[in-house]
Design a protein around this nucleic acid. Structure first.
Lengths: 168, 168
DNA sequence: TCGAACTTTCAAAAGTTTTTGAAAATTTAT
DNA sequence: ATAAATTTTCAAAAACTTTTGAAAGTTCGA
């Protein structure tokens, strides 16, 4: 396989992976394109490289910047804005974990906290069973939360070590 | 909050969480409904409980069974089939991790293996940079893979493991 | 201040996923 | 063997998400 073909393949695979990770496909593809670009790319480069519209580029690049894995750079002598991707894959990984945690785990932790305060006779089997289920889920969610926080904080060798601690 | 309200709230929250985890919302809601049901539920109970069609119930219950977190049970004297959810949340967690790994990580590992075999002059900066990026991603992906495998394999009852942590 | 270069917005169009429900298939009781 | 009960299928409809592209907004140099 030659380089251009390999690049195209990577962009497409990264896009598919992103889609399954709850990242929109185009956003992941833009990230891939920037990740393997030797130079900063302009909005137009991205439009051309992926064959997508200007608005689409704008929207997704903005989101990538929100996630903290792409940034704007200014190229001397150029009026346009250029973009580069974070190349340290660990940082990319932790950024994704952070975003997902924010979107996914934090809200349920909040609701679970409410739900095991459900009113009712503690002698009622139904009430007891419900509370127990909620408490179990809460414990699980908290463990996951701890593991993710440790991951986000750690710079190296994250999940394996944390996970071992939590599971053990 | 009273029990019925709490149940409704839980179903709705679990559904939203599921949606963000790449599980279809209805599938997650059916799982939630079964998780807090004191008795096995029939297809009709689920249709009524969530206000969805028969076909929808059938399809999503089947998928939950594929994931190994819901099973069919027969209630003596009843002709219908009934369903119950796995109540051990740790098992549910590992099932989800297993499915997601299968869908998400395994395919990219396969492609990455191909991609750092890209042909080209090792003196070419472009080729070198590309290979390096691929190798970094591969390393990251492999570590994630190991971590997930450890998580999935750990058969330990999660309750026991938390208990140990609390006691220790 | 003007206008060219560039970026952002957003409503409508295209694409994708999920749901429905009626028909077909299967199972079970008699 | 029959028919009633139940489950499964699947094409079409509905709901949801993403993309487009033209128009509005902004920035910057002269």
């Amino acid at each position: 396989m030659k380089l251009p073909e390999a690049k195209a393949q990577f962009i497409q695979t990264w896009g598919l992976l992103g889609a399954q990770w709850g990242v929109n496909r185009t956003m992941a593809q833009i990230h891939a394109l920037l990740l393997i670009a030797p130079e900063p790319l302009s909005a137009e480069d991205i439009m051309g490289g992926l064959d997508i519209s200007r608005g689409n580029v704008n929207m997704n690049v903005r989101e990538l910047m929100n996630w903290g894995i792409v940034e704007k750079v200014l190229v001397p002598g150029e009026r346009k804005e250029f973009f580069i991707a974070e190349k340290d894959i660990w940082k990319v990984g932790t950024a994704i974990a952070r975003e997902r945690k924010k979107r996914e785990l934090d809200p349920i932790l909040k609701v679970l906290l409410q739900l095991n305060k459900v009113e009712g006779d503690p002698k009622d089997k139904q009430v007891r069973a419900f509370r127990e289920t909620m408490q179990n889920i809460q414990k699980f969610a908290h463990q996951t939360d701890s593991a993710l926080n440790a991951f986000i904080k750690s710079e190296e060798n994250w999940f394996y070590s944390t996970l071992m601690k939590v599971i053990r």
